[in-house]
Simulated scan of single mutants.
Amino acid sequence: MLMIGIAGFALGAHERDWLQHPACAGVVLFARNFASRAQLAELAQAIRAAAPRPVLIAVDQEGGRVQRFREGFTRLPALQGFEALYRRDSDAALALAREHAWLMASELRASGIDLSFAPVVDLARGNRAIGDRAFAADPAVVAAFARSYVAGMHEAGMAATLKHFPGHGSVQEDTHFDTAIDPRSLEDLRAQDLVPFAAGIASGADAVMMAHVIYPQVAPEPAGCARRWVTDILRGELGFRGVVFSDDLGMAAADAAGDLPARLHAHLDAGCDVALVCQPAQVPTALEALASRPSNTLALAALLGRGGLGWDALLADPRREAAQRSLAALPTLQSESGAGSGAIHSGDVA
C-alpha cells in the first residue's frame, strides 16, 4: 500500500495514471498543492474521481509552522503553546487542546480532506525537527494532551494518527536530513517516550506513524522497518489494531534501509500497512517496486472521511468561532516560521 505526493494544484495525466495503480492507496498533500479553499476542494474531488477505488487524502495540518493550508483556514497555534496554560490550569489547557483538534479536523473535513497526520506525541526534548510541534517534555503531560486531542479529532469525524512512534523527541538529529540514533534501552523508552503513545492508543487512536530513528538496543533498523517495533511492540505489547504508516521514505534517515524499493519492502515486511512516498519524482519507482506485491485496500477503510460538514455549515457552527477566540489567546511562537527549531520543507512529511 502506497500513499503518494503530487506536484501542483491540479492532477497531471501521469498522476491520474498513478492513482489507477492497484498499490496506490491515496495522496498526501502539501503547501505546493494549495492555492485556495475552492482549488483544494476541486483537487480532492479530482483525486477521488481518478481512482478506481476509495482513496485516502491526507495532510500535515498540525498548526504553527507545520500547517500546509493557511489562507481561508484558521491559523492554528503550535502545540507547545499549550504547556504554559497547563501549568496554570490543566483542565483548561486540555479542553482547549480538544478544541484545537476539533477545529483543525472540521476545517479539513469541510474541504474534502480525510486525515491530518496528527497529533504529534513526541516529547519536547530538543529535537530539531520536532521543536514546538510537541506539547511538553513530561510524558504524563503529553499523554494527557494525547487523550484530549484524539477525542477532539473524533468529535469532528476524523481519525487520529499518533506520531512518530516510538518517539522522535529525545534525539537531536532531524531525520529529514540526517541519520538519528537513540541509544537508550527499551526500559527507558517504555518509561518515557512510549507513555503518550500508550495513552493515545487506549483512547482509540486510529493510526500511528513510525519514526525513522534507530534504537540499537531494541533493533538495528530504523523503527519503521523493524519488526521488533511494529509487530512485537506496537501491535503485540501495546495492542494497537489500527493503521501503521511509515514516515516519508524520501527522507535522508530512511537511506539506512537501502534504495527506495528496499525501503518500501522493508517497511511493509516489518508490518507497516502503508508506505509514504511524498516526492513525486520517486513515485514511478515506488509503484514499479510494488507491482507484484499483494495490496490490502481494506486497511485504510476506517480512516476515510466520516461525513464532515461543508464550509457553509461549519461557518454557521458557533463552536468554530468560540474555538478561534479561545485559541487566539495562546502564544504564537517565533519558531512558527522555522527559526531555531528545524524548518520542515513543504515537500516532506512531518
Rank of each mutant, 00 (worst) to 15 (best):
A7N: 11
F9I: 05
H14L: 09
A23Y: 11
V28F: 15
F34R: 02
A38G: 08
A44H: 04
Q45C: 13
L56P: 01
R65T: 06
V66I: 12
E71M: 09
F73K: 04
P77A: 08
Q80Y: 14
E83A: 15
A84R: 14
A84Y: 02
S90K: 14
A97M: 07
A97I: 06
E99R: 15
M104D: 01
S106M: 06
L108P: 00
A110L: 11
G112I: 07
F117M: 05
A118C: 13
D122R: 01
N127W: 00
N127A: 06
D132T: 12
R133N: 07
R133H: 09
A136Q: 04
P139N: 07
P139T: 08
A140I: 00
F145V: 01
R147E: 14
G152W: 00
H154K: 14
E155T: 08
A156R: 03
T161C: 15
F165V: 03
P166H: 13
H168G: 10
V171S: 13
A180V: 10
A180W: 10
A180H: 11
A180K: 07
A180N: 08
P183C: 05
L189H: 05
Q192F: 11
Q192I: 05
Q192G: 14
P196W: 00
A198T: 08
A199N: 00
M209K: 02
V218S: 14
A223L: 08
C225F: 08
A226K: 07
R228N: 03
W229R: 02
L238F: 12
V244E: 04
D248H: 05
M251H: 01
A253Q: 12
A257R: 02
R263A: 01
C278E: 02
Q279D: 12
Q279I: 04
P280W: 00
Q282S: 14
Q282P: 02
V283L: 05
T285D: 12
L287P: 12
R293T: 13
P294V: 09
N296T: 10
A301I: 03
L304C: 11
G307P: 10
G310I: 10
D312C: 10
L314T: 01
L314E: 02
A316G: 15
A316D: 13
D317L: 08
P318Y: 06
R320E: 10
A322G: 13
A323F: 14
S335D: 07
S337R: 12
G338R: 08
G342S: 06
A343C: 04
H345D: 11
V349Y: 13
